[in-house]
Design a binder for these strands. Structure first.
Lengths: 357, 357
DNA sequence: TGGAGGACCGGAAGCGCTTCCGACAACCAT
DNA sequence: ATGGTTGTCGGAAGCGCTTCCGGTCCTCCA
């Protein structure tokens, strides 16, 4: 350890020793830089012997190429941007894990852009920090507005959406309407006639009419049940908000015998309200959520499972295909959802016919 | 839209139109490339008038510099790597959100490396994909082994750790021992004498003797209570595992009257077991966790709150300081934890003196 | 009025790679 | 023996920036 090296917190830092360059390796191996490059990249046109010599030298000095120089020289970035409105929420974390896994295997770097608040989001689309930095973009879990789309086009790269319907971009998602129907049909099948819905909305994100909501209305209509407006309340995504929404439902003169929540987080919050109100689940009131969030099994919540990680993986694979210039076999992929019956749902206590006003 | 542009899924892609270069802008503005560069970078040595002219041209063609070329030319990367073992878990997602926010404001890109499994992790340290790509590394929530540390040094960059004690790297974390004591002292104060502990271990990560565990032993010792080995069970992080661990505790001939879980996820799982066993919380058995995970408030779990996002922010700020060549005022930052009493803890039913054997 | 100094600017040399193209040698078929 | 391959290799031209270095031109003071 020479005098130039400084020790910071136990880590040896030696900024005076510049990284080796390809030219160094070439010289050391006694070949031209072109040959060295070819050897390192496993290109053809190098004798096995020469290649080995280069490789040995490179290994000896633990040489790695400068990605910047490579990218500059060949014009490809080998990087993709993932932009997501949340990370700490299970759905998004899981999604990003799936995406990251696929890209890592493909040797592609993932640049993360977290656009939680409205300002973040606006700033992202305004400044487009990903400009000239990525070959593609994956938008996770939120609809892109018209104006934003225009900005995104400036990137001049492929875009795919994951976990959120999209008319414009190739995407992978679940069928929200179907998921909602699975939940509603389950409740209906059990005999419930007065069903409440807690709509989850994201205050920081523009809302779109959700399939999960229309599923509620359609299901009711098909069962020839009235649509009582006071039975549907909307709440921002999240447990606390779900709890409040449930409080509202509970304060009705005729509360529902079952509630359909747009997400498990919301459902779990609602369960707290029910419990605190001294009511039992599912005896007094049934509840079903959507997602199969890990917490769902812990609180024995009946829910509609959606495979999140694989949505991420599929989206990443789409990007990979696009990057290779392939045409996508299908513009959008819908993964299926599944009813998981646990113990928060049961038939209503009384004969439904007696309850219905 | 000329004939060259192809439309894929509504997105205009025109690979034939190369990005504008600095030289183009310079020419268009009638200045040399050096001047254009200075104008764009807000360097001095350019008249206000010339600068404005360049800026106008650049804006007109919505020009952005090529980050690769910049990095190549000036040798700085402006990127940092975040390596984390999980993302879908609240703790990690929250942490990364905090980190990302700070770096985004500083104009630094975040490269994400997710090393969930042991193989991932090994591969990461083996191949060091971040090599020559980042100016610093933040390691989130896991201890770095000796051998890994050696590899990390090859990166020749600053490293800081977030959410996990570290003897070597600058870091920010909570005092695990103290958090554990807060939990235990609370239970002890309530009068519990037979307290179980569910140790959370991460199978995919090397474990270290945790402060959370020693807090248990120390607290017991100080209260002159015996240390009954069968009262401590360890479980992989996660709700289901917590549930199983609790089952074990419940099957003891003298089950504990309270349990201290290393994390809220584990605690919530344990609650399910207790509930399924027909026992009531907190009447029959008390439980306390650590984290103040969002779900904790939803299930009314008493817990020790730790500020996760700000740990991430602080870690990022440390990196920023290091990057600017500053010396850190403090090598490690400990953020404080806080007991949040909700309704899963209460005094034991019977006089503790009757229970203690 | 002359020259020193400063403000402004452009040319050009890198930064570390990839890749085109030409050179050379050895080897084949004619 | 000769022309044409084929297989290897190196020189050098970029890729799009930053920045050193020097050149103009103008100002200001002696």
């Amino acid at each position: 350890m020479d005098g130039r090296a400084s020790i910071k917190y136990g880590v040896v830092m030696d900024p005076t020793r510049p990284q080796m360059t390809l030219a160094d390796i070439a010289r050391l191996a006694g070949v031209g830089s072109a040959t060295a490059s070819r050897a390192l990249n496993n290109d053809k046109g190098v004798s096995a012997q020469t290649r080995q010599r280069v490789l040995n030298v490179a290994a000896q000095y633990s040489y790695v190429v400068s990605p910047e120089a490579v990218r500059l020289a060949k014009g490809k970035l080998g990087r993709v941007a993932v932009v997501a409105p949340h990370l700490s929420r299970w759905f998004f974390g899981e999604m990003v894990e799936g995406i990251e896994t696929v890209f890592r295997d493909a040797g592609i770097d993932v640049l993360l852009y977290f656009v939680g608040s409205l300002e973040d989001r606006r700033a992202f689309f305004e400044k487009l920090p990903a400009r000239r930095k990525v070959d593609a973009v994956i938008v996770v879990g939120f609809p892109v507005e018209e104006a934003e789309r225009a900005r995104l086009e400036l990137l001049n790269v492929n875009i795919v959406a994951a976990g959120g319907q999209h008319e414009v971009y190739p995407n992978v998602c679940i069928d929200d309407y179907r998921a909602g129907r699975q939940a509603m049909d389950h409740l209906l099948f059990l005999g419930h006639r007065r069903i409440g819905m807690i709509e989850a909305v994201d205050l920081d994100q523009p809302t779109e009419p959700s399939g999960r909501s229309s599923a509620y209305r359609e299901a009711l209509k098909e069962s020839k049940l009235p649509l009582d407006p006071e039975l549907v309340v909307s709440a921002p995504w999240g447990g606390e908000q779900g709890a409040q929404a449930m409080d509202a439902l509970l304060s009705l003169k005729t509360p529902p015998t079952a509630v359909y929540a747009h997400s498990d987080e919301v459902a779990v919050g609602a369960m707290r309200s029910i419990r605190r109100a001294g009511l039992r689940i599912p005896e007094d009131i049934s509840i079903v959520g959507i997602d199969d969030h890990p917490v769902a099994s812990l609180v024995d919540l009946t829910t509609i499972r959606q495979p999140v990680r694989s949505q991420g993986e599929l989206a990443a694979q789409m990007v990979l295909a696009l990057l290779e210039g392939k045409t996508l076999p299908e513009r959008e992929i819908t993964v299926s959802t599944q009813l998981i019956v646990r113990s928060t749902t049961a038939p209503p206590r009384q004969d439904p016919s007696q309850i219905s006003s």
